[in-house]
């Protein structure tokens, strides 16, 4: 059987909110390592990889590796029924085609369980090689979300350019053009407000803002976002999940023909 218990159940609610708009159906892989997911968006342009390590849960039992296919919109509907302070337990018995979500209020005076049907999903698992990135930007996640939102009112794509001056986000459209430059700023009172740019080589890549905006749904999970870029490689936009793992989005760059 498989069982996990997460006292900070709101984390799981936030994780679902950050992937459900990008992916419709996905296989969750349960193993002794943890609870993970890898899924592509329907147009195969973006990929999302989630890992929640087993040590991060208050209780984690996985007798044998298990794949649970779930419709993420339905899963999000069920997790929405959990209170923000609720403890969430996910349970699945071997050989059944359902998963149970149990929600306990902090004072244990309300206990709910929701059973959801699992589905068979034929999904392609991709091998993601470890890459050396030419530029790595760490910045406040809310700032990145704001930039993506602001630029999407100007154009459909963002050009992200890292030089020794800093990182430039540019968009162009029918009404005009916009450039937002963020400089390295490590001298802040709180580390989560810092912008750190590690650059081996200057790099410039173009991405669809629709996807970037979708990735920023993960902003409530982490104060900082890490953006890793190399020429001719997908960008990686990473949000840490409270010391227990991460959610990483990979987006293929747009190329000029």
């Amino acid at each position: 059987m498989f069982e996990l218990r997460l006292v900070q159940g709101s984390l799981l609610k936030k994780v679902l909110e950050s992937i459900k708009d990008l992916v419709n159906d996905a296989n969750f892989d349960c193993s002794s390592t943890g609870f993970s997911l890898q899924a592509m968006d329907s147009s195969h342009v973006a990929l999302v990889a989630l890992l929640l390590r087993s040590e991060g849960f208050e209780h984690y039992r996985c007798d044998r590796n298990l794949t649970m296919g779930m419709n993420l919109a339905n899963m999000a509907k069920m997790l929405k029924c959990a209170g923000n302070d609720d403890i969430i337990t996910i349970k699945a018995d071997d050989g059944t085609d359902t998963v149970t979500f149990m929600f306990e209020s902090p004072s244990q005076d309300k206990i709910s369980d929701f059973e959801m049907k699992l589905m068979d999903i034929d999904s392609e698992h991709l091998g993601i090689p470890e890459a050396e990135y030419e530029a790595i930007i760490r910045m406040p996640s809310a700032e990145f979300a704001r930039i993506c939102r602001d630029l999407s009112s100007i154009g459909d794509t963002v050009v992200i350019s890292v030089t020794k001056e800093g990182v430039r986000f540019s968009a162009r459209g029918d009404i005009g053009a916009a450039n937002i430059v963020c400089r390295q700023n490590a001298t802040v009172d709180k580390p989560e407000d810092a912008t750190i740019i590690e650059m081996q080589e200057p790099v410039t890549l173009t991405f669809a803002l629709r996807y970037m905006n979708s990735f920023t749904k993960a902003t409530p999970l982490a104060e900082q976002v890490t953006i890793s870029m190399s020429s001719d490689l997908p960008v990686v936009v990473e949000y840490k999940v409270a010391g227990m793992g991460y959610i990483r989005y990979y987006l293929a760059p747009k190329i000029e023909e």
């Binding site: 392609e124 091998g127 993601i128 090689p129 794509t157 990979y250 747009k254 023909e257």
Partner: peptide, 14 residues
């Protein structure tokens, strides 16, 4: 014309 590359072309299939 811009062309979006597919993620499958970057990563190896398992």
């Amino acid at each position: 014309v811009n062309q979006q590359q597919q993620i499958t072309s970057f990563f190896s299939k398992k």
